[in-house]
Simulated scan of single mutants.
Amino acid sequence: MNAPHTDDTLIAPGLRAFLQRIVDYAGMFPPADLPLHEAMENFLSYRTEPERWMLNRFVVPTKRLDELRPFRQAIASNPPVGLSVLGQGGATVDAFLEAFTDDLDRIDTCIEDHNSHVRPDVMEVRLPTALLDPFEAEPVARFLEAVDSTLAQHGLAHLDIFFEVPLTDQTASQLPQILPAFASANANQPVPEQSILGLKIRCGGMEPELFPSTEQVARAIVACRNAGVRFKATAGLHHPARHHDEQYEVMRHGFFNVFGAAVLAAEHDLDVDGVSAILREENADTFTFTQEGMQWGPLSASVEDISHSRAALAHSFGSCSFVEPVEDLRALSLM
């Protein structure tokens, strides 16, 4: 990026806690659609920038992990590279588990190829659609046990998995029944070797119908908060505040909105209406970050509260651009 930036020591502690390792760089995906080699070059470059503290993992499909081999030397000369890998998934449980075994084989090979200088410690993958229509708790519990058993067989018990459930009115209403199964599976994990399950929320895409409503996102955040399950977001969160997209004629969600709503929902026990109000906010300046923490309207959270919510609830978001969020924050005089 190499653009002028605010002295790192002047960044408000509330903002630093809020944005710490918040961006999973997904440069290979739309609308950027960069070749893998260019996306990885960008990622390694961003790790030298003053804003590197905002950067989290590199997002790559498991089927393309072998394409990282040309970067072995570059990766080995830097701190280990964290990867969030996209699993192949499957519509049925059997199809999922077959693809999942192949995914784990590819992860094993990648770790060996790079002598552990890469750390594929997060997977994003769709929950089999067969488990959602109709939803029944027992089949989901059996599925999660099978996933855990497969992980153990591969010696990858440390791989966290965020299951994507496409947000519709129906699935959003099902999350209060689905997520307790994730929480139960997490509670039964041994410490310290554990694979923590979470929810992946898709906030946009290349079609208007892929943008969930504020109420659907709010229901997902509240359901995660109530179940004690983390979420990560993806798609559409390039800019801080909610705004109109002229290309798709939709309202895009902002990362201040989604993650601010999660932090304040955790701190103030907000209901769906309360979370929705934060998600609808279109003025980024109403989110203020200070030495003490953050505030939106009458609601506030301390630096410690923000850090806890980011660790326990609001994990990160995938973005095909790391530059755009940083430039927007500079334009707001926050960095």
Rank of each mutant, 00 (worst) to 15 (best):
Q153K: 15
G254V: 05
T288P: 08
A314T: 08
A183C: 09
A220N: 02
A284S: 13
L44W: 00
I306V: 11
T288W: 09
A183E: 06
G254D: 04
R280T: 12
S116P: 03
V222Y: 00
Q189V: 11
G254C: 09
C203E: 07
H238T: 03
A152W: 10
F317P: 02
A301N: 04
R126P: 15
S84D: 12
S321F: 07
E41H: 06
H117R: 08
A227P: 09
H117A: 02
T288D: 05
S173G: 12
G82L: 01
P139I: 10
D169L: 09
E193S: 12
E41L: 07
V303M: 06
E281Y: 06
V258N: 02
F71I: 00
S333A: 12
P80N: 05
A220V: 08
L332H: 00
R330V: 12
K232G: 07
F162N: 14
T129I: 13
N186C: 07
A223D: 10
T48M: 04
D113H: 09
G274E: 06
S333L: 11
M251F: 15
S173C: 11
Q153S: 15
P70W: 00
D121T: 14
T168G: 11
N226P: 04
L175A: 03
L44S: 00
D269T: 13
